[in-house]
Simulated assay, not measured.
Amino acid sequence: MFHVALFNPVMPANTGNIIRLCANNGCQLHLIEPLGFDFEEKKLRRAGLDYHDLSKLVRYPDFSTFKEAMGKRAIYAITTKGTARYTEISFQADDVLLFGSETGGLDPEVMEQIAPRHRLRIPMQPNNRSLNLSNAVAIVTYHAWDQQGFAGGA
């Protein structure tokens, strides 16, 4: 299944929602520090409900450690600065979908490590800044999973 990576997430409720989402769609969740909250925060636990035990979650101290762990997997950055729509990609089952912080997106140093053709955007109305992080993760992961025929799903 796919890998969802959150770089420097700062809102515990979003991360909790994404934990629940990944438990339901089978994605492996990767959290890249620093985190903008305590991992034991009540909002994180509440949003993730009882799905924390069902999700596959790994934490990394920084982006370079994460990138090394991903090996040769394709990494797609989902960003408002993307050069292609997420719907224009044929995702493979082991691809990585990388999302930036709710407040700052992806750091320029991280973005430089992602090939321009792997920087994807979700279309939105003009003059809007961005979507909610957990909504963006849901949109892209379910599209990618659909391309796999919802393999493993009920």
Rank of each mutant, 00 (worst) to 15 (best):
A93V: 09
P34E: 13
D94H: 10
P126T: 13
A144H: 12
Y142R: 00
K42C: 09
L49W: 08
E88N: 10
V110Q: 04
F7D: 09
I19T: 13
L97K: 13
P61A: 12
K81L: 09
L49I: 14
R121A: 06
F7Y: 10
V10Y: 00
N8Y: 06
F99T: 02
S130G: 05
V10T: 10
R59V: 00
G149H: 06
K72Y: 13
L44G: 00
I18W: 10
P123R: 02
L98I: 06
K67C: 14
H30S: 15
V10G: 00
P12G: 12
P9E: 11
V58Q: 13
W145L: 10
I78C: 03
N17L: 04
A13K: 09
Q113T: 02
I32Q: 03
Q147N: 14
P34H: 12
Y60T: 04
A84G: 01
R45V: 10
L49P: 07
V137L: 07
Q92E: 11
P108R: 06
Y76Q: 04
Q113L: 07
G16D: 07
A138I: 01
Y60K: 02
T87Y: 07
L31M: 02
S55L: 11
A23D: 14
L21N: 04
F63Q: 08
G48I: 07
E88D: 15
G36H: 13
A93S: 09
I89L: 13
S90F: 04
Y76P: 01
T65C: 09
N128F: 15
S90H: 07
T15G: 13
A138H: 14
P34L: 10
E68G: 08
F7M: 07
N25P: 04
I122H: 05
A5Y: 01
L49F: 03
Y76C: 02
E109R: 12
A144L: 06
Y60Q: 02
G100Y: 01
G16M: 06
R20M: 08
S55D: 02
V96T: 03
E102N: 07
F7A: 15
G105F: 08
R45N: 10
L6Q: 00
L97C: 07
F37W: 11
L98C: 03
G26M: 11
S55Q: 06
A23P: 11
A93R: 04
V58S: 12
